[in-house]
Nucleic acid binder design. Structure first.
Length: 227
DNA sequence: AATGCGCTCAACCGCGCGGAA
DNA sequence: GTTCCGCGCGGTTGAGCGCAT
């Protein structure tokens, strides 16, 4: 049985006050990020480390963009979600100034519905057969908000994603290219200088980089999904 | 004006992973 | 090889808000 991350009796919960925010900002500016477990005590906060980390990453970090998502960002999220599934941190990593929480919320509140309204299943980014039948005769291809052409296809006999994938979308690059023959996924990769050392360092935590490399997904916004 | 409903988003929860002991 | 610990991730919750009735 796992121990709770903190003693809930001694910690504040819920919305953060300005004073708490300021304490956290001051501490991190002075000492930097890291060691979240001991941070609250060191910073004089009655919060658990997890809560501090979340508050900093999702709200207080100075490089956060905040505000509405642009159309280009929407497109990128949809494209990346089609490739990566619900791997929000990976998706957010391609969107400078955006957090995984922000992307996840935006997907659930806006983009998901947007795709549904267009008759596209947000889980697998394919045209919803039922919806299609109930509407007009099938069109050969429909442009999605992300500029992809999606063809109505028969649902596969088995799930698109193996059962290990927590996401119902998962990585389906191969599937898409098989199922969507007109979808020419030209996914070139340009490694920014800052990440070259990271990749070459063969850091054990480079699974994400390796994943993207293996999928030939651009780490920057140079993701190209040509039609 | 009061109420209900739906939406948004900050925050929490539980789990899995990787490193250290 | 096993256990413990800290961190990060994705899913879920709930308060607050705006809009419709």
């Amino acid at each position: 049985m796992r121990r709770p991350c903190c003693d809930k009796q001694d910690t504040n919960r819920g919305a953060w006050s300005k004073e708490e925010d300021q304490k956290l900002i001051d501490y991190i500016q002075k000492h930097g990020e890291g060691c979240w477990r001991s941070l609250p005590q060191a910073a004089g906060l009655l919060r658990c480390g997890k809560s501090c980390r979340l508050r900093w990453i999702n709200y207080l970090r100075p490089d956060l963009k905040r505000g509405n998502f642009g159309e280009d960002e929407e497109d990128l999220i949809i494209k990346l979600h089609a490739l990566l599934g619900n791997r929000w941190s990976l998706i957010a990593g391609r969107l400078p100034g955006r957090t995984d929480n922000e992307v996840k919320n935006y997907w659930n509140s806006h983009l998901r519905r947007k795709l549904i309204n267009m008759g596209i299943d947000p889980n697998n980014h394919r045209l919803n057969q039922n919806l299609l039948r109930s509407r007009n005769p099938p069109k050969p291809a429909i442009a999605t908000p992300s500029g992809l052409k999606v063809q109505a296809i028969q649902p596969p006999a088995k799930p698109l994603v193996d059962s290990e994938q927590t996401s119902d979308a998962g990585s389906r690059l191969d599937d898409d290219q098989r199922a969507l023959p007109d979808l020419n996924l030209d996914l070139t990769m340009s490694i920014p200088s800052s990440s070259i050392a990271h990749v070459e360092g063969n850091h054990p935590k480079d699974n994400e980089s390796n994943f993207l490399r293996s999928q030939q997904i651009a780490p920057s916004s140079s993701l190209l999904l040509s039609q």
